[in-house]
Design a protein around this nucleic acid. Structure first.
Lengths: 219, 219
DNA sequence: ACCTGAACACCGTTCAAGT
DNA sequence: ACCTGAACACCGTTCAAGT
C-alpha cells in the first residue's frame, strides 16, 4: 500500500461519486484495507484531497517538443487546452482546484514551466507571473461554470435556457436576451473566445513593456 | 425565527470560524434554537450555504447614480472594486462562490445589471455575457489566491517568499526570479493590473465588433 | 516495526412527541 | 399548525491490541 495508489483510488472514486460522497471508509474498502491505515500516509482527509488536486495537475501533459517553434501565444494556447482538457475529465474534482491555491509539486512544476515560457518570449518577470495566475484562474473558472456543482450537465443545457427564459422578462431583460445566444454557442468556442481576450490583453501589455522597459512592473 | 436571520447568523459564524467548522448545532445554538428547526426553512446544509453565498452577493452595493456619466470601463472598474471589496470582507466564505456558479436572486440581479451596462455601451449581446463571466471569474479567482484556504495571511507574506526562495534554484529558477517581485508588489495594485489586462482585451473585442457587426458573436 | 478492529466524539438529518 | 428533544446512521479520527 503506497501513497500513490491511495491518491489514485481516491481520485477514481471522486470521479465516480463526487467529492462530497467520498468517504475514508469507502476509500479504505476500495483498497481492501481499513481507515486507520490511511492515516499512516496522510495526516487527514484535507491533506489527502490536496494530494488528489496535485495528482490532477500532474495529469496535464504537454510534451516540450510540441511547443517548439510556436509563438508564445500558440504555446500558451496549447498549454491552456491541455489544462482545460484535464479539468473536463475530472468535473467532480474541480472545486478542489478552485477553492485554494495549489502548492503541490505538480503545481509548482507547471508554474515554473509557463513562467519560463513567458520569460523566453520577452515578458518582464512581473507580467509573466501575473499572466500565469490570470490564465490559471480563467481556465479553472471556465471549467467550473461548465461542469461544476450547480452547473447544468450537457443533457440539460436547453433546460437552463428555459429557466432563464422563464424569468420575469421585465426584471431580467438583458439576461434573457443573452440566454439564447449563450446557451446555443458551443462551450468550446466560448472557451477559446475568452482566452483570446485575455491573451489580447497580455499581448498589449507585453508590447508596452518592450517599448518602455522601466514600466515593466506594471503599475 | 425567519430565514433571513438564519442566513445572516450563518454568514457571521462562517466569518468567525470558517466554513469547515460551521455546524448546524452551532448555528442552532447561536439562534437559541434546535437543529431540527433549521430544516423548517431549508432542505439541508447545502441549500443553506447556497443562500449564504447569495447573501454575500447581495452585499455588493453600487448606487446607480455612482455610475452616471462614466465610461463602460470606469463603470466596470467601480463594480469590480465593490465586488472585490465584499469578497475580501468574507475570506472564509470565498470557496462558496468559487466552487459553483451562483444562481440566487442577488446573483441574477448582479448579472442583469452588468450585462445591461455592457449593452448600453454598444457591446453585442454575446460579448457582454462573456465579459460578465470573465470578470466575475477573475475577481473571485484573485480573491481566492489572496485570501482563500492555503493562501498566506497578510502576516506571513514574507514567509511565502521565503518558502519560494527555499526551493531548489536549479529546479525552479523562473518561479524564484518572480517570487520576490510578486510578493513585494501590493496586492491591490496586482488586482487592478490584471483587471486592466482583461478590460484591454474587451475593449479590443468591442472595437472589432463595432467595425464588423456581423462577427459580433465572437467566432 | 507496521498494521488495524473497534471505539470515540461528533456530524447532518429525521420524526415522534410536545405545545 | 408549528416547534423540537432525542435518536439514527454515519462521519473523520484515534489508539490499544494484534501480527
Amino acid at each position: 500500500m503506497d501513497a500513490g495508489r491511495i491518491v489514485d483510488t481516491a481520485l477514481k472514486l471522486i470521479d465516480e461519486v463526487g467529492i462530497q460522497a467520498l468517504t475514508l471508509r469507502m476509500l479504505a474498502d476500495a483498497l481492501e484495507s481499513g481507515t486507520a491505515t490511511l492515516y499512516r500516509h496522510f495526516t487527514g482527509k484535507d491533506e489527502l484531497l490536496a494530494l488528489v488536486a496535485d495528482r490532477i495537475l500532474g495529469e496535464v501533459r504537454v510534451p516540450p517538443e510540441e511547443l517548439d517553434g510556436l509563438s508564445w501565444r500558440e504555446a500558451v494556447n496549447a498549454v491552456a487546452e491541455a489544462f482545460y482538457g484535464t479539468l473536463c475529465r475530472h468535473p467532480n474534482a474541480l472545486s478542489l482546484l478552485a477553492a485554494q491555491v495549489p502548492v503541490g509539486p505538480n503545481a509548482l512544476r507547471a508554474r515554473e514551466r509557463l513562467i519560463t515560457l513567458f520569460l523566453g518570449h520577452g515578458f518582464p518577470v512581473g507580467l509573466a507571473a501575473r499572466a500565469f495566475t490570470a490564465i490559471g484562474h480563467y481556465v479553472i473558472g471556465f471549467a467550473i461554470q461548465q461542469h461544476g456543482p450547480g452547473a447544468p450537465g450537457p443533457e440539460d443545457h436547453a433546460q437552463l435556457r428555459d429557466y432563464y427564459l422563464s424569468l420575469d422578462p421585465a426584471a431580467y431583460p438583458a439576461t434573457m436576451a443573452a440566454a439564447d445566444e449563450l446557451t446555443s454557442v458551443p462551450v468550446h468556442e466560448e472557451f477559446w473566445f475568452g482566452l483570446g481576450l485575455l491573451l489580447d490583453g497580455l499581448e498589449q501589455a507585453r508590447a508596452v513593456s518592450l517599448r518602455e522597459p522601466e514600466a515593466a512592473a506594471g503599475h
